[in-house]
Simulated assay, not measured.
Amino acid sequence: MITTKDLTKVYRSRGREVTALDGVDLHVREGEVYGVVGTSGAGKSTLIRCVNMLERPSSGSVTVDGVELNALPGQEHRAGRDLREARRRIGMVFQHFNLLSSRTVQQNVELPLEIIGLDRTQRHRKAAELLDLVGLADKARNYPGQLSGGQKQRVGIARALAGDPKVLLSDEATSALDPETTRSILSLLRDLNRQLGLTVLLITHEMDVIKSVCDSAALMRGGKVIESGGLTELLATRNSELARELFPLGEFGHGQPGNTVVEITFQGDTSAQPFVSQLARTYQIDINILGAAVEHIGGRMVGRMRVELPGGHQENVVPIGFLREQGLQVETVNEANGAVA
């Protein structure tokens, strides 16, 4: 549904060049919720603005629903109506809501419908349906100043859906909200994804957002995509940086000198297996659980566990093999610095 190829964006100011995007390749499948995560300055906001052509890429391509957007003339050209039409199919939710304070909630949602030329009756009916969809049917006559932050963001989401988009872009839509409100907005986005078949691309600096709602994710740093893939695939990928960020175990201990410390990744059916007790009984060894991180992602329990086995690695080749036979991913932790070997 969304594909970028070798996407580059360079800003030029006062004789200097700043590369915000450096050859970004991204593929978001139809109907999934895809998260792009990274710290400030990673290039996330520039990426999402290039996807809907609020920013023109310096080079590379952006394709949404089979249309290469950067190949269409800009709005300054007479033929720019093709780009405008393509962008109608892309909804955008902003961090700071961007609602008009002089308009009621209903009128804010109707604004994009006015722009495309719908008559008053059609606008009113459509806006009412959208406000009901986001749980704000009773707030239609209120003004933005009378709403909470979460309610304002729901209005922003309803407005973004006015053009019946196939793609919904979310630019740090929950970063200004408290944790409980954040959870409700993420739940709404997931519900809309399922009910309307929306493809959702969201950017965030919070790993909890990725864990809560995304099917796939990409990690950005310095304008580049460092790693990407489905969350369950990333968990099964050796030395995945994203998986370690999602399930951090670094704060836990590294065991006693001379013993073997391993990290076990489990998901799906393997999460229900009592593999620790089975290992202890089968090989009559004492196992020390140093730490664990467990989450539900996409309805499946996934997580990581760090355990200490008595004796060196050579003495534990068979027990480690036993764990792998159970469908678990097992990696040995470097005794010197706690890194996975």
Rank of each mutant, 00 (worst) to 15 (best):
V318E: 04
K9P: 01
V18T: 14
G15H: 11
P112R: 12
N193M: 10
T39R: 15
V36E: 04
D6N: 15
R56M: 11
I289T: 02
L235W: 00
L83V: 07
V330K: 02
G74P: 14
V64L: 04
G327I: 02
L118R: 15
A42W: 01
N193Y: 11
L130T: 11
A280F: 00
V307Y: 07
A336H: 14
P144V: 13
I157T: 09
V51D: 03
R16M: 13
M1W: 10
V276P: 02
T265F: 03
E308I: 01
I289V: 01
T182N: 04
A162Q: 10
Y11F: 12
G149L: 08
E227N: 01
L161E: 08
T104S: 06
R159C: 09
S271A: 07
E76H: 14
Q267T: 14
P165M: 08
L47E: 01
R88P: 05
V10R: 10
R300G: 09
H205M: 06
Q146W: 11
R87G: 05
L186C: 04
L54T: 11
V93D: 05
A336N: 14
S184R: 05
L189V: 06
Q151S: 07
G31S: 10
E233Q: 12
V209R: 06
L246S: 02
L147Q: 08
L130Q: 06
R238V: 08
A293P: 00
T204N: 07
L54N: 02
E206A: 08
L309I: 06
M92R: 09
L131Q: 03
D164N: 15
L136E: 13
E180D: 14
N239Y: 13
V62G: 03
V109A: 08
R12N: 11
E325W: 01
Q273F: 03
R56N: 12
A280W: 00
S13K: 15
A341N: 15
V333W: 00
S228K: 14
V37T: 02
V28C: 00
G299N: 12
L7K: 00
V36R: 04
Q326P: 02
Q256P: 02
V24W: 05
Y143W: 10
P73R: 08
P310Q: 08
Y143R: 13
I320T: 04
R56W: 13
R304N: 05
N98H: 13
A160Y: 05
D269V: 04
S45W: 08
Q153S: 02
V200F: 01
H96I: 09
A128T: 15
R154L: 10
V333Q: 06
P257I: 11
A293E: 14
L196H: 03
S61C: 07
L133Q: 12
L234G: 05
S61T: 15
V209P: 00
R87P: 01
